[in-house]
Every structure is written in C-alpha cells, then in structure tokens.
Amino acid sequence: MDKYYIGVDIGSISTKAVVIDSNNNIIASEYIWTEGSPIEATKKVVKTLKNILEKKKIKCNIYGIGTTGSARNLIGTVLNANVVKNEITAHAIGTLSVYPDVKTILEIGGQDSKLIILKNGIVVDYAMNTLCAAGTGAFLSSQAKRLGVNIEDLGNIALMSKNPSKIAARCTVFAESDLVHKAQIGHKKEDLIAGICNSVVHNYLNNLAKGKKIEDRVVFQGGVSKNVGVVEAFKRVLKTEVYVDTSSHLMGALGVAIISKNANKNGSKLDFNFDIDNIEFKTVGSQCSGCSNNCEIVSVYKDGILIDKMGGRCDKGNSLRKTI
C-alpha cells in the first residue's frame, strides 16, 4: 500500500497544507487565510485535503505529519505531528526537492522575510529579519489598502509603470510618509505601486543580504513572490533570473512533509483521522504564578481533555501533571 505524508505550514497570514507520496509528489494541496485562528484554518485545510483525496479516489494511509510556520507548536499538538520544524529548514528542504541546484532562496512572507544560502544542496547561511516587519507582506497589504487597490492586482499595476516613484526603503513609517507625500503632489498610482515594489526589494537586500553572496540559481517564494512587480524588481536589481515556482507558496509545507517522511524511520502507520472537523479543540490562556515572570500559558484541550500546555519558560507552567 502506498504511503502518504502530510505537511502543514501555518503562517501568520496564510495556512498551507500538502499531501505527498513517497516520491515527494504533491498529491493534494490547499492554501487559505489563517485569519488569526490557526486551529480553525487547520481544520479547514485538512477537510479540503480529504475532499481532494476522495475525489481522486485515493485511500490515504498517513505515515508522517509535519508542521512548520509560526503556529507549528500549537498545530503540532492538535494534529499529533511526528515532526515540528522551524520554517527555515522546512523551506530549504522543500525547495531543494524541486530545484536541487538552488543556491539562493529569497522568501518574503506576511510578517517576516528570510534569505537562505545553499551550497551543494545544504544550507550554509541564512538571515531572517529581526525587530521590524518593514518590506514584508504586511507592508504591501496595508499600502494596497491605502491606495484602494486589491493586493492581488498590485503586481500587474506595477508593471504598467514607466517611471517608478522613489520610495524610502529603510523603514515602513518613512516609506508610508513618502508615499502619501508623492501621491499628494500628483504621482500616478502605477508609479507609486512600482515604487513600493522596488522599496520592498531594496529593504530586503539592505537588511538581509548584507555581506552575503547571491548566486544562481535564485528561487523566490513566500506570499509576496506572487506579486510580479516585486519579482521584476528583484530581477532588475540582482541582474539575474529569479525563479518563482507555481507552487512556491507550498514549499514550507512540502519541506516539512518530506522531513516527516525521513523522520518516520521504522515506517509505522500513524493513527490520523481526517475528520478533525468534529473534534473540538479549545485553547485556554492563563498566567503562571510560579515566579515573577508570569508566563502566559496556553492550555490545549481536545474534546475537553487537556492534551498540552505551552508558553512557559520552565516546566512549572508547562507540566501537565500539576495544575497551576
């Protein structure tokens, strides 16, 4: 019987999930907005995966479940995953399975951006933005709203511009004041939008790529890679081809599915039920009073039974045995 593996990437903005077979082919995939409730989003994607598999008449035996993304620990508990992995490793593994010769991965997501440098198929260096969300998807979507444009159309509008406005790249606040100012003195909308796309690229390169060599082949992924304006700006600035895979948004999920496959060495089937829609997962927040850190503890209940606690700095708060 064929073995299948599930990878779920729960980001701040979107939730991605894939089912792969043992040759790393994507059998089913889904991509939806997280909308602030990772558990609900996970339920939805799992349901869709089930429907797709049923339509394809695949009887699915799950041998691995991996979670990644910022809600990976929570969803790891909910799905009882056998692997919980950070998104940097997951993205690298996923991309390598599609482009074995990749040397640079540019990734811009909803709230963070990453640069991963690879050599002979292994990660040798990476950078991730700290302290600031400038130049990420969140910036683009707030500016799209300000200009009254759909985020999906941003890229195509940018391509129409012949003379992009110069928008400060250092900081979102400066970029925004540049944008408002230039709009008020009569810059065209497409020029402004092209300017924003350029500013995202410059911000990214200034922040993350300092002192790092960007070499072919360059693969661009994350939600922002769907924006052709940003893709073109990268090509122009880096003076090289930038590859965007049609399933570029799924690379994290794909990667963690592959990792879960590798992790399940003895090859035992996992007890996984696609019908998690009927199961009630509840999270309860509380404050641990064990010391003056007052850690915020999140307790996860499955049908009323406590299955995990997380968020504490020590095991005082996280322990399932003791009540706090």
């Binding site: 950070n86 940097i88 002979n120 292994i122 990660v123 590798n262």
Partner: peptide, 25 residues
C-alpha cells in the same frame, strides 16, 4: 533551531557520515 539544523547538515556533509539526521527521533 534553524541555525542548529544548518550546522548539522553542514557537518554531516563534511564528515560524510550521517550522524544526526534532520528530523530524526
């Protein structure tokens, strides 16, 4: 965690033995 994974991958490659596999138990 990512830094650690990266160093493990690099080291495995250098030593050409698989000491700790990413995603292992």
């Amino acid at each position: 965690e990512a830094f650690y994974d990266m160093l493990v991958m690099k080291k495995n490659m250098k030593m050409e033995t698989k000491c700790i596999e990413i995603g292992s138990k």
